Amino acid sequence: MRLPTSTDLYAWAWRIAPRLPEWPAQAAGAVAADVTWLLHTDGVKQLERNLARIRPGLSARELRRLSRAGMRSYMRYFVEAFQVAGFSREKVLARVRPTGVPAVAEVLTRGDSVVMALGHSGNWDLAGAWAAYDLGPVLTVAEKLPDGLYEQFVAFRNSLGIEIVPLEDGNTFRTLLRRAGERPQVVPLLSDRDLTRHGVEVQIAGLPARVAAGPAALSLATGFPLVPVDVHYERLRGEQRRAAGSRWGLVIRLLPAIATHDESGQRRGVQEITQDWVDVLMAAYAQHPQDWHMLQKVFHADLDMERLARSHGEG
């Protein structure tokens, strides 16, 4: 008898999860989060190291409490990500409270696209579905996954109205550049971690870390504005909770565009622009740290920098 592969499990989840009632699916997610947290897995330990840096001064007990909330938020996202394909437009809109929409809508109306810098916070799949419904076409990048998962993943995102460009060395940026200019659309890029040779060194909470150059580079190359986007959860009550079918809603804050030129009109550098959007998003994450789902290494202190440099041919 053949054991199910990860592809089988993902395919099953995308097929079954949209049919499940909200409360048992989320209850199962909360149990999975608590078990993982209690086991204090490597991912949980890394989450705690990351959270301790953006929220310094927490006691050990406070940090553990925060990481538990973080794992519950992460599993909430995971369950929703599989269920969102079955959401109606009305349910998506009922779950989302956006701010800053008029400024972005104005750019799209005049025929330009908008580059967006996002982190792994809140529910970026639901945010993408909302944008496809309420803003315009959505174009983004995704890493190629093994064992046939990529095709499943692309089909899932396409069902939400999100077009995917595969992450491929040497081709991704050129493809994204060409496609972004074909029509007005939003181009959200998850960028709060990047260990490739193209990653940019920035300071997060005064500590060196690596993030993606993509948002700044694409904005400079196209002339399209670069908008940081903060995504986090909030509790719903009353009529909105009934309409959403959930006690949790999503806040999507489209923040003021980052300056790509200085006061004299000269282009700013990619690193400088990147540091600006990182500062904006990390300040937001410090206000709702439980929704920053960063279970991977992003700070230099956690990375083997010599090995990283060798893998990129830099040493």
Rank of each mutant, 00 (worst) to 15 (best):
D230R: 08
D230K: 00
V231S: 09
H232E: 03
H232K: 07
E234F: 14
R235A: 08
R235E: 09
R235G: 03
R235M: 08
L236T: 09
L236R: 08
G238A: 10
Q240Y: 03
Q240S: 05
A243F: 07
A243N: 11
A243P: 03
A244I: 00
A244Q: 06
A244C: 10
A244Y: 05
G245F: 07
G245T: 09
S246Q: 05
S246I: 01
S246Y: 05
W248F: 07
W248N: 10
W248L: 06
W248R: 13
G249I: 01
G249Q: 12
G249F: 10
G249A: 08
L250W: 13
L250G: 13
L250V: 12
I252G: 14
L254K: 04
L254E: 03
L255I: 03
L255F: 02
P256S: 11
P256M: 12
A257I: 08
A257T: 10
A257C: 11
I258P: 02
A259S: 09
A259N: 10
A259D: 15
T260S: 06
H261L: 13
H261I: 05
H261K: 12
H261C: 09
H261D: 09
D262I: 02
D262F: 12
E263V: 09
S264P: 02
G265E: 10
G265T: 08
Q266V: 05
Q266P: 04
R268E: 07
G269F: 00
V270T: 11
Q271R: 15
E272I: 02
I273Y: 00
I273C: 04
T274L: 06
Q275E: 02
D276G: 10
W277P: 00
W277F: 11
W277H: 04
V278P: 04
V278M: 14
V278K: 13
V278I: 12
V278H: 07
V278S: 12
D279F: 11
V280M: 09
V280C: 13
V280W: 08
L281P: 02
L281V: 06
L281K: 07
L281C: 04
M282G: 07
M282K: 03
A283G: 14
A283L: 08
A283S: 15
A284D: 02
A284T: 05
A284Q: 14
A284P: 00
A284G: 10
Y285R: 11
A286R: 14
A286G: 14
A286T: 05
H288T: 11
H288I: 04
H288R: 13
P289Y: 06
P289R: 10
Q290G: 11
Q290D: 10
D291V: 00
W292P: 01
M294K: 15
M294I: 10
L295N: 14
L295F: 13
Q296N: 09
Q296E: 15
K297Y: 05
V298D: 01
V298Q: 11
F299T: 03
H300F: 09
H300I: 00
A301Q: 10
D302G: 05
L303Q: 09
D304T: 09
D304A: 11
M305V: 11
M305G: 03
E306P: 00
E306Q: 13
E306H: 06
R307M: 12
R307S: 14
R307W: 14
L308E: 13
L308M: 15
A309F: 00
R310A: 14
S311E: 07
S311D: 06
S311R: 05
S311W: 02
S311N: 05
H312F: 07
G313D: 04
